[in-house]
Design a protein around this nucleic acid. Structure first.
Lengths: 246, 246
DNA sequence: AAGTGGTCTAGACCACTAA
DNA sequence: TAGTGGTCTAGACCACTTG
């Protein structure tokens, strides 16, 4: 382990990366004590505060745990933040080791009904794209997904773009910055029309996911209603305690 | 604003709390610039590094945003974070404006079966508390919840503690630091036994939530299986696109 | 008693932004 | 050019844990 004091990369960041690498490569194992802050400071020829800045970042990222009077230790898990964050159906299935595919049921511009308009924060009857797809995993139906997009925001949409990647079109071509989404999950049972497309019995368990997605400036750009087969899909999700204690 | 240098509470924490209070009380509004680090240092008669530690914590908690060369500003949102993070049933129902209550079905120490043992990362047959409760909202059944806790970690549990607040006992009395949890959500239908306790028809939609919760050092301390009534409960959840860039 | 992380000081130079 | 946050130093005393 060696650092370059003349590098434009901050020293604390260099230290951080090297310790992180040791953890990820297995040179440092869970529950191992790492050298003390003073040891690192001497070894690298830097001040202890600089070492602390590196360690603080690793603690915040969940790689290390401090214990007063004892030392600093490698975290037990660092449960990978995998399925965190906004993922598309395609990304989601790939994470799960399945092959995603689509069947476009229909694609058209319609005037927004009230429930859609309110989610997208536009007046009722504003033109919106309605995209209805059966989502397959390993060629078996997984979900029935209906997406609504404001036509004046997501311009020039074609069925070809949808089949390639909607997110890439929005971020890459339209240069809009996707920020976050709110989801609602609830249990339901398959309606007649859904049961046929999903190839399950009528009344079979369905996981309904309603998602409204926003751009960086807060504009909603997408409202999605997905009906997942209860027998095939589990939604997985991580959350932390300290996100909002005040 | 004034700080007490002789207080056992660290100075940076005192500064932190006072700035946070100003934001929450509306004395500092979103996009407002706060005084510079040097101004704070002089005003409080402390070093700039101490001020920085306070501001860093507020930045990490999402209250402030730094901009190189410009200054430090109050975050736009911070309201959004609501139903984020790990919440108890009690907190969850209160957020939703409902009155939470419990009915203890049973409470005992049993040897862990395989599925529970693997979630809690202990050998099979290790003693665990099993706590089964009907969770009510406005006096109507909302969920059937079964919690498993390793008996050698969560010591001295009584039904009274459970009825008060399990989390407060773990954090306040046992001094363990709760960190994060992984959840699995799936749609199912009510079994005979569940339908009776939840007061729904057999076969009614059920939202199953399986949660494994971890301490700061990565030790799992709790595995919970909750069966929520599909007709009464929706799980709400926010996520951002850039959650995991390192 | 020795070592650890937690807190804190009083400076310093840098890159960046704004006027 | 003046002011800001970003980085860094070389110390210090504290409370805590362990031998």
């Amino acid at each position: 382990m060696i650092i370059d004091k003349n590098s434009p990369i901050p020293i604390y960041h260099q230290i951080e990366e090297q310790i992180k690498a040791k953890i990820e490569n297995g040179f440092l194992l869970p529950d191992d004590a790492i050298p003390s802050e003073r040891e690192y400071a001497e070894k690298f020829g830097v001040s202890r505060m600089t070492v602390r800045q590196a360690l603080n970042n690793l603690v915040n990222d969940g790689f290390l745990v401090r214990q007063k009077g004892r030392g600093t230790f490698v975290s037990k898990k660092k449960v990978e933040q995998k399925l965190q964050g906004l993922t598309s159906f395609t990304e989601d299935m790939q994470e799960r080791g399945m092959k995603p595919s689509n069947k476009l049921v229909h694609f058209e511009i319609i005037p927004a009904i009230e429930s859609v308009a309110s989610q997208l924060d536009v007046p009722v009857h504003t033109p919106v794209y309605e995209v209805k797809r059966v989502r397959l995993a390993d060629d078996i139906p997984m979900a029935l997904e209906t997406t609504y997009l404001p036509a004046n925001l997501i311009k020039g949409l074609t069925d070809e773009i949808i089949n390639r990647s909607l997110y890439q079109y929005i971020e890459g071509h339209l240069k809009l910055e996707i920020d976050q989404a709110t989801q609602q999950l609830e249990a339901s049972t398959a309606r007649e029309s859904e049961s046929k497309l999903l190839e399950v019995e009528k009344g079979a368990p369905i996981l309904l996911i309603l998602r409204t997605s926003f751009l960086k400036d807060g504009t909603p750009y997408e409202f999605v209603r997905s009906a997942y087969r209860g027998d095939r899909y589990k939604f997985i999700h991580q959350m932390s305690r300290n996100s909002n204690q005040s």
